[in-house]
Design a protein around this nucleic acid. Structure first.
Lengths: 212, 212, 212, 212
DNA sequence: TATGAATGAGGATTCATTCAT
DNA sequence: CATGAATGAATCCTCATTCAT
């Protein structure tokens, strides 16, 4: 039990540091972020951060990886809703589109994307970490669903991967501006409008043409 | 003329500093960028940078503004090609789409967008600078062209601004991944494929429906 | 005439620079004082200051010398009132004491003394400049007057120089504290009280004892 | 004990820094004084100075406060000699006067006064620090002693505070000139002469008048 | 293991001074 | 002669990292 407790404590500290690190990196940027600040925000001493992660770069990588895992989980949870039950395709797509946009607009997602942009020159591996863990998988999961819908005759999407990418594009394309890169909170009604417009165009292009 | 020479010299230095500043900021990020490095790259003394711009923040703002002006010019030059001469709409759109993608993939554009992402928390005004000077205008210019094409009966786009945004979205949506946020050079043939797919979907959605 | 005018202009600028220099040196201290500030306060360009005085040290020396000359003039003007007309010795001494204190408390005098204190390590010559031009002469002038009063039988001061020094000491000894080194303006009534106490003690010690 | 050792070490460094800081500030003046120089002179790293005192201003304040404490101690030690044992009043006063002058002429005292003069415009609080801690207390301690001597019938000083101030004034009034503001070492014999002259005048003014 | 203390390297900014006009 | 522009040296301060306890 004693061991269990201390192990728990250590793991908790690790999580606290990762959380604080991501928050501070996101808020200040990698270079401006102070290890002291991260340590303080995590409630540990600076040296403890070093004993866990060795150096600031490693801390960034691990914090980003953890954050990417969480983002993937959030996105996949949404996609699970997109089954091929043919009920009302438009409504289903709009619902999924809205949720995807909500994921996309989650503060943590913005932070992750901004960090990625900022540090890609210094740390190109970050992109792989995130893509392997999150972004790629989401697109593929969506492509899977669209393929099934195609096979089921609800959609006409010969290349499901392209369709998936374009669906995402239509959804998220105008969001950077609307959300001021995550600086402004986009109201849900606005997200719904965007999703509707995206689905509208998407269906015009990919809906199964009525026979005849 | 004597005055002209010295003024020219001062203006030249100013331009050199702005260019170097943007290059270094883009390469290193704001925080990591050293004013010494910028000065050296511009071929002037560090103090000269300060006598021109006062401090590093101002330098960032001015460098970004100048860069946004250039980006706007590049984009508008492309859009001028999109007239309502009804030749071959698809080919025209694909051509314009390709050039827009090329603008989008220009190193300087990537750098501008990355810098914006990185520093938006520290300097929220940057977004306004860029949007006022560049991004917004391009979208509107494209909407203008699409509106004309609609009026001329070549397109069916009741809301040209939405159509413009979606055209952009379809074009650029998958580029972040393909170009690894500007880290990888996307070959022209790949850009052409993307443009073709985008125009394809765009036309399916917005092409003038045959009467009846 | 043209020559006269330009010479006048040059001399005026020189005076303006000296005045501004003393003001800024006094306000900021030598090291903190910026030549740009002095130039601006004098209404000339920085380079003009250099063409007149060569460098900052010289400017300090000349500004101090000019200020010392003015201080000397102010003090001597007061001492002229101390004649050996035996009217009322106490009243005369109190009047002179008060005026000397007013000189001592003049902002420019405080500034001069503070500058001297500050920079004596860096520029030991300053002390000679001031002493030669001002401080020494005032004490000697006072000693002269006291000697005459002694000879005239109004005082008993075998060593007039010591008496003069002590008269000054009694006057100014508590002023540093009262004026917070020139930071606080001492009201005239307080100065009068101090002068009275000084003269009181001085006369107790040096008044001619009544015979028998 | 372990803690004691490390604490000791830290306190030692703090003292070393304060000592070095005062020395360098006194020698160079606040503005010219380099924190690097102070650190080097204290045998610590520059950053250590900052970790102890935060910034240069705080360092100045603390160094001055410590120096004022030391000066107070030196002065009070002298005043303890001035009891009301009626032995030989003149000799006692001359002895105390000489020691007070020696305190006044101590290099550290000159440095403290010069620093105060120099920086009073930038840091007016310094005056309060020193007065609260040192100058004021010394005058009052002297006034106390003089009051006792009065009560014991050895002196006639109705206002002991004024008498104390004037005693100091007579002692120190001519010293600024003689010591060239601390730049020249005044030989002890000269100090003795000054003290004798001061006591002479002081006693003429304040000695108990023969009854009747 | 966790920590408080110490440090060395680095970066933004200022300023006296010079030079071309 | 007076000036605007340019500069190089110097200075305060921060921060990632290490070490003794």
């Amino acid at each position: 039990m004693g061991a269990t407790v201390s192990t728990r404590g250590r793991i908790d500290k690790r999580q606290a540091i990762l959380g604080a690190a991501f928050a501070v990196f996101a808020r200040e940027g990698y270079a401006r972020a102070g290890v002291d600040v991260i340590a303080a925000e995590a409630g540990v001493a600076k040296a403890t951060v070093y004993s866990h992660f060795g150096d600031k770069e490693t801390l960034l990588r691990e914090a980003i990886a953890a954050s990417a895992d969480q983002a993937l989980a959030r996105n996949l949870a949404v996609l699970d809703r997109l089954t091929d039950r043919g009920d009302d395709l438009r409504a289903t797509l709009e619902g999924v589109g809205l949720r995807l946009l909500q994921c996309y607009c989650d503060d943590r997602s913005w932070a992750l994307r901004r960090l990625l942009s900022s540090e890609i020159n210094q740390f190109p591996e970050l992109l792989d970490i995130v893509h392997t863990r999150a972004a790629g998988r989401v697109t593929e999961a969506l492509a899977d669903r669209l393929a099934r819908l195609s096979i089921a005759g609800h959609l006409h999407a010969p290349d499901p991967l392209v369709a998936a990418e374009q669906f995402f594009s239509l959804l998220s394309g105008s969001i950077d501006t609307r959300a001021r890169l995550g600086t402004r909170r986009v109201p849900n009604t606005e997200l719904r409008t965007v999703a509707r417009a995206a689905v509208d165009t998407f269906l015009k292009a990919f809906a199964q043409k009525p026979t005849g």
